[in-house]
Amino acid sequence: MTKVAEKMDKIVIEVGKRHIREVNRDIMAACATGRPIRVVDTLSRHNLAVGLPDNVDITFEGSVGYYCGGLNTGANISIERNCGWAVGEGMAKGHITVGGYAGMSCGAAMIGGTIHVKGDAGPRVGVAMKGGNIVIEGKIGYQSGFMAHSGRIIALGGAGESCADALWEGEVWVAEEVDSLGVDVDVIEPTAEEVAEVDAILDPLGLVDSSRNWRKMVSGQRLWYFESRDASAWLMI
């Protein structure tokens, strides 16, 4: 296979053992054509498709490594199997689909767009996110939602330990069991309007199910203006 080959209407780009900077240059050049892109022989390599522009449709055949789709500004990115750490880190817009498992820090510090993971996700999903939506069909890992400033994490499976630890104004929605809560978290009953908002996110993904028993986690706000001289306030949580 050539490094960049045209196959039907798609542009096919091979990763293999090539330098990632060279691969990403090929991807950016392909983005400029407006044609769909298929990336093959990915071998779980890191840093693929970082900083993609709007109006791009790109599919990764196989698994990818760390930071795939980071700083996305509007591309529609599909990863057919697993991804490593921090898929979609810092993304502002667009859509990322992961067919399998997502490693630690999925959607870290993202500010917009949607990440949809069909399998489970590792620890710290949405850590420090400031907007957008992360939908995990399976279970979210340890300390997911840690210090999320805004946006929604929606787990259709359960959640691991220390869920939603130290949230700001982000929300963590879990449909199954939560192993344990983090500090300063309240579990509240969502209103019908809020459930409708979540269903509006799930609807395009074909994931709406009215029988779910949602646990919505928000900040207890007891640590928002924590005064270090008042350590007893921390100990009470």
Partner: peptide
């Protein structure tokens, strides 16, 4: 530590277990 390393020796498509939890 990294998936790309195990794929150097497991060249056939295979399931990967991520021990990401605490």
């Amino acid at each position: 530590t990294e998936e790309q390393a195990v794929r150097r020796v497991m060249t056939e498509e295979c399931d990967v277990i991520n021990y990401d939890g605490p």
